[in-house]
Write a protein that binds this DNA or RNA. Structure first.
Length: 893
RNA sequence: GGGCGUAUAGCUCAGUGGUAGAGCACUAUGUUGACAUCGUAGGGGUCGCAAGUUCAAUCCUUGCUACGCCCACCA
């Protein structure tokens, strides 16, 4: 079949993808092959393909296609994540648009609606991954709320509970008042907010006075509203200002609540007034201070409901007027009320004219916690939640990374990993949502908790008590932490589990190192006793062309599907791979994607050329027998490229791998080999060219699956042997040094001739004669063996092995030979002299520099022998060249 | 406050203890048995700054500067 003149990606992508998928080629039956396994970071069902997915999945597909071609039983597990908060938000938002809301439904009815949504629109991203060409095993597509996955989640929860690694605790959590759920530390992001720092008087009770005569203590806060639940004031025991009032009491001005002044290390004499108001129920530090002061968590006063509206505290002392109001409204009221009561200490500042003025608060930039999903300020809130003992579970992963059982690539991330894991806090895993894995815990009337895999088992444990199941669900990351094994059928001991767990590699963005990767390590070790994978590859972010993070609000988002439409999936994939050097973010560069589209076209045309000259698919894995230098040379170049590619893949250097095949195709195969064989399509050359092209298609396939598969089919009739399941090259040949030297000499000669012609203004096509008196046998042989290259590419009508006639001529060097090309009447002597003089200067400069080094005794004595040897050889070469050039100059007079 | 990373050609980035490379852009050009989404030739860099180690530093060490990211309770 004849190939079209230009390559049209859109015309072949869909065709090949469905061919691969419907024929089960993403996971051919290879029961006897070595397994190779990657699990795909499950995208949220709510998601659509963004540029980060394109990078992440391209890298994985490059690896999995590479391993599949190498004959492994390659499995790329794919699926989606139920994404508790995100998905519930999507469905609730849709309800809002219809003036409807979640609470209009029963829990069951709402969850049904989410499932409905999932079935209708949850698969967007899986279609989009197909457009990128990703060769995942769709036949076993997973979902984190599949029944077997749920069983795994429940088992893990129960097992960890029984081992004491999951427990229920009352402590402060990060509460999202918008989503009305607890979230984990990782889901909190700190943002800088402009706020105020207010100073207040807290009067001492019972007429007590401080040593300095004051009858109050000054406290400062950025959150005045919490004073409604203040339970003490802390001062430092070493602070002389307050030594006399420790254990004395305060009367809080707004609530009238009496509480103690306590000594606590938390109070820093250097900060503010040195005295801190303590609200144990609404501040993480204060919680600890409160506990040290002997206040039990259960007795800590609470002043907020789930939406952070003010509610009456247990002691009933919060004034009526604040109740039911928003925390930020109450903040303003409290400042005003304290001010009216004379309890606000104003802050002195200067107005724009430099005049001193009083203001209520000192302006401050405050590090404020926000929920990463809800986007509102997090409220520390005292609740009962389920916790995972992360410190215990982190021990095995820490050891695994320390010992090298898990290799993190690039290594620089290890320190970050250690830093986080060594300081890990209990992981709050319960969420007050409806969409998710419901926690397998049942509460009895008497407060007892029963954790079991089923209600029946829980009831059996509880006897005849009445049980009600915990309403809460688990953090989404709890279930995705099981992804490496639960997707394979665990806890059943399936063949898949046996063969594919542990997995071989995990590829993920560094942004989910803590959320996901670290937790897979913890759960993997805790539940299976094995690390989920021996290798973790972390890639960076794809940034906008301006270097900023892409975001919808900035409007700088680049849509990968748009790039695929415009340049083809192959081009986008190649871009991602070629730009992926370890440890650096990728800046989006559409021109470069375009360049790789051009590369695909270049290959396309090279294949078209081969096809039109009767070069067809090869029939052997091993390189064909070759006798000509050009053919031996290109086989050697394949061997070298393959070596570079394999090494790069072993090192996970995607950029090096992509560049190796790119330069082989363009620079060696297209620019030289094809040019050199033009006009000489003998059987050997056709066999070699066909073989080389096949090797190119195989080596390039992991990066550019579509164009290579299309060409593979076009070049040979091999319908039952598609490229995707072909064999990785095994040339069974080596580099032929003599052939390489011969072709390198030709390339140098042709290059030097072209340069000289260009500089002397000689038409590139002009045919010239050359003289080479007293050639070495070697050089003469090369010239005689390659008449085509000499005539057609070097454009020399003849090379005479005799002295050149007198007259103007240019001198062309190649290796240690020097060709004289007479230019009588073609060019004036002055131009050639100038050209030679310039070249001579360069040679002399090089020679002189090397000479200087060689004349330095310490260099000769101390440098490595190879370095000295190389300097000597280079010096000899440049000196000889300089000599030839000055001889040529002399000849020109 | 801690930790990490990055500074190399106009732009985006590789790289090495022995005087620097790619892609794009730029200049000139269009002879060639596929390819103008192409070919050929060329210009362009005191490798952020300073000191140190070394026969030799863009590369190793230290300091500085700039930018970026992550973690952390300064009330």
């Amino acid at each position: 079949m004849a190939l079209d003149k230009t390559f049209d990606p859109a015309a072949i992508e869909a065709k090949w993808y469905s061919h691969w998928e419907t024929n089960g080629l993403f996971r051919p039956e290879r029961p006897d092959a070595t397994p190779y396994t990657i699990v795909n970071p499950p995208p949220n069902v709510t998601g659509s393909l963004h540029i980060g997915h394109a990078l992440d999945n391209t890298l994985q597909d490059v690896v999995i296609r590479y391993e599949r071609l190498r004959g492994k039983d390659a499995l790329w597990v794919v699926g989606t994540d139920h994404a508790g908060i995100a998905t519930q938000m999507v469905v609730e938002r849709q309800m809002e648009a219809r003036h409807d809301k979640r609470t209009n439904y029963s829990r069951e009815a709402f969850v049904d609606k989410v499932w409905e949504w999932k079935h209708e629109s949850g698969g967007t991203i899986t279609c989009q991954l197909r457009r990128l060409g990703c060769s995942m095993d769709w036949s076993r597509e997973q979902f984190t709320m599949d029944p077997h996955f749920t069983r795994a989640v429940v088992k893990v929860f129960v097992d960890l509970y029984n081992k004491g690694l999951i427990y229920r605790d009352k402590r402060l959590v990060n509460w999202d008042p918008k989503l009305k759920t607890a979230i984990s530390d990782l889901e909190v992001e700190t943002r800088e907010i402009k706020g105020g720092f207010w100073h207040f008087k807290y009067p001492l009770a019972d007429g007590v006075k401080r040593d300095d005569g004051l009858d109050y203590i000054e406290v400062a806060t950025t959150r005045p509203e919490t004073m409604l639940a203040d339970m003490c004031v802390a001062v430092n025991a070493d602070d002389p200002r307050y030594a006399s009032v420790i254990d004395k009491e305060i009367v809080q001005p707004l609530t009238g609540r009496r509480f103690r002044i306590v000594a606590d290390e938390h109070a820093d004499p250097e900060l503010g007034s040195g005295a801190v108001k303590i609200t144990p129920g609404h501040d993480f530090n204060d919680f600890e201070v409160g506990k040290r002061a002997g206040i039990k968590p259960a007795d800590m006063l609470n002043m907020f409901d789930a939406e952070a509206l003010v509610v009456q505290a247990a002691d009933g002392l919060i004034p009526e007027k604040y109740l039911g109001l928003d925390r930020f409204v109450v903040r303003d009221m409290i400042v005003a009320d304290m001010k009216a009561a004379g309890m606000l200490i104003p802050h002195m500042t200067k107005d724009k004219d430099g005049e001193p003025v009083e203001v209520d608060a000192e302006p401050r930039t405050i590090q404020t916690p926000f929920g990463d999903r809800g986007g509102v300020v997090i409220e520390p809130w005292l609740t009962d939640q389920w916790y995972v003992n992360a410190a215990e579970l982190s021990k095995a992963p820490l050891e695994a990374v320390r010992s090298g059982a898990i290799e993190i690539v690039p290594k620089s991330w290890e320190k970050t990993f250690f830093n986080w894991m060594e300081n890990i806090q209990p992981w709050c895993v319960s969420r007050q949502l409806w969409w998710g894995h419901r926690i397998p815990a049942w509460f009895a009337d008497d407060g007892e908790i029963y954790v079991a895999e089923t209600e029946e088992e829980a009831q059996a444990l509880a006897g005849n008590k009445t049980l009600s199941r915990d309403e809460d669900v688990l953090d989404t990351w709890f279930s995705s932490a099981l992804w490496p094994f639960a997707t394979l059928g665990w806890p059943e001991d399936t063949t898949l589990v046996q063969r594919h767990y542990p997995n071989d590699l995990l590829v993920s963005g560094f942004d989910i190192l803590f959320f996901w990767d670290a937790r897979m390590m913890m759960m993997g070790q805790a539940m299976t006793g094995q690390n989920p994978w021996p290798r973790l590859y972390l890639h960076g972010l794809v940034r906008a062309p301006d270097g900023q993070k892409m975001s919808k609000s900035k409007g700088n988002v680049v849509d990968p599907l748009g790039l695929i439409d415009q340049y083809g999936a192959d081009a986008l994939r190649f871009f991602m791979a070629a730009m992926e050097s370890q440890g650096r973010d990728i800046k989006m560069d559409e021109r470069r994607v375009e360049g790789y589209r051009n590369f695909a076209t270049k290959l396309w045309n090279a294949a078209r050329f081969c096809e039109s000259n009767g070069i067809a698919a090869s029939t052997s894995i091993a390189a064909p027998k070759a006798t000509s230098a050009v053919n031996k040379w290109i086989i050697g170049e394949v061997v070298e490229t393959l070596g570079q590619l394999d090494q790069a893949m072993a090192d996970l250097r995607f950029d090096a791998a992509a560049n190796a095949i790119y330069h082989f195709v363009w620079d060696q195969f297209c620019d030289w080999y094809i040019e050199l064989i033009k006009g000489n399509f003998d059987e050997e050359t056709k066999a070699v060219a066909g073989w080389v092209l096949d090797q190119i298609l195989v080596m390039l396939h992991p990066f550019m699956p579509f164009v290579t598969e299309e060409l593979w089919g076009a070049l040979g009739d091999r319908p039952h042997y598609p490229l995707i399941t072909a064999s990785w090259p095994d040339p069974q040949a080596s580099v032929d040094a003599e052939a390489k030297a011969e072709v390198d000499w030709l390339i140098a000669l042709i290059g030097n001739l072209r340069t000289a012609k260009n500089e002397l203004g000689i038409a590139p096509g002009a045919k010239l004669e050359a003289y080479l008196p007293e050639p070495s046998a070697q050089t003469r042989g090369v010239i005689e063996r390659n008449p085509g290259a000499i005539e057609r590419i070097a454009r020399l009508s003849a090379v005479r092995f005799e002295a050149a006639p007198a007259g103007a001529a240019m001198q062309i060097g190649a290796g240690d030979a020097s060709l004289i090309v007479p230019l009588e009447g073609v060019i004036d002597i002055a131009s050639e002299k100038a050209r030679l003089a310039k070249a001579l200067e360069v040679s002399q400069k090089e020679a002189k520099s090397l000479e200087g080094r060689l004349n330095n005794p310490s260099f000769v004595e101390k440098a490595k022998p190879e370095a000295v040897e190389k300097a000597r050889a280079d010096h000899a070469m440049h000196a000889a060249e300089a000599e030839r050039l000055s001889a040529a100059l002399a000849r020109l007079g």
